[in-house]
Computed example of a mutant assay.
Amino acid sequence: MAPSAQPAAANSAPGQTRLHRRKARTRQALIDAAVGLIAEGRGERASIQEITEAADIGFGSFYNHFESKDELFRTASEEVLERWGQMIDRACADLDDPAEVFATSIRISGRLGWTHPDLARFITGAGLDLLDIPRGLAPRALRDIKLGQAAGRFTVPHADIALGAVAGGLLGLLRVHQHHPEQIDETAVDQLAEAILRMLGVPAREAKRIAVRELPDIPAW
């Protein structure tokens, strides 16, 4: 089952009419179908007919909510990634060191294969296209790299290039875990976080120490 882009309660807000609730459920069904197709690596190839069949709604209902398949997939990606980004923000709320915030984000995201496998498949299905989505993980990672630069914690000169390298490393880890789970354990995730900190300019000994600190609790999805 694909990760739902929104909590179920969002579809039954107080004061909504029955028609509004039905429209919200149909829209959410389309978004969930899009998320599932992206997770399967079929997002670009899927037709609107396939999307509506996956959502179990009539073909004509699609255009009551979205003008195109591209708009649907963009909306689905933004909503899923923004929700996950907000969860990481909450998990890191008590951390002050930009290096520890960044490492914690990587270590939590690298554990998605165990904690949230559907979301991990969605991320690998979307691939590096995630860097172009204006909400969610990529803008937060870029923000945190720039905060680390401003604080003198990161010496890497180009934040955007660093973001691409980080994204590639995380995607690679998640893909290996999906296809060869026996090769990846939580130590491998922490080692990736350590390597990323060193790439960003954190001294090796300190990077190693940060990458094995106790992780904060991850809020429920």
Rank of each mutant, 00 (worst) to 15 (best):
N64L: 13
I31Y: 07
A167F: 12
R153K: 05
D129A: 14
G164C: 08
L81E: 12
A126V: 03
S47H: 07
E182W: 07
D94N: 13
G43D: 05
M199S: 08
Q149N: 03
V202E: 00
S4L: 08
D89L: 14
A204H: 12
G41L: 02
H177W: 13
G201H: 08
V212P: 08
D97I: 02
S47P: 09
T115F: 09
P14Y: 06
E79A: 10
E214I: 10
D32C: 11
V80L: 12
V166Y: 10
A151C: 08
Q86M: 02
S77H: 03
A76P: 08
I38L: 07
T187D: 14
Q6H: 09
H20D: 09
E67G: 13
G113I: 11
R83M: 01
G152N: 11
D97L: 06
A13P: 04
I184S: 10
A39G: 15
H180L: 12
G15W: 10
T17I: 06
L128T: 11
Y63F: 15
L19N: 09
D96K: 12
R27G: 08
T104D: 02
S61F: 10
R90Y: 04
I57T: 15
G58Y: 08
I161V: 15
A93S: 10
R198P: 00
D185F: 03
Q178V: 01
D185S: 13
A150Q: 12
E78K: 08
L171E: 02
S4P: 00
A165R: 11
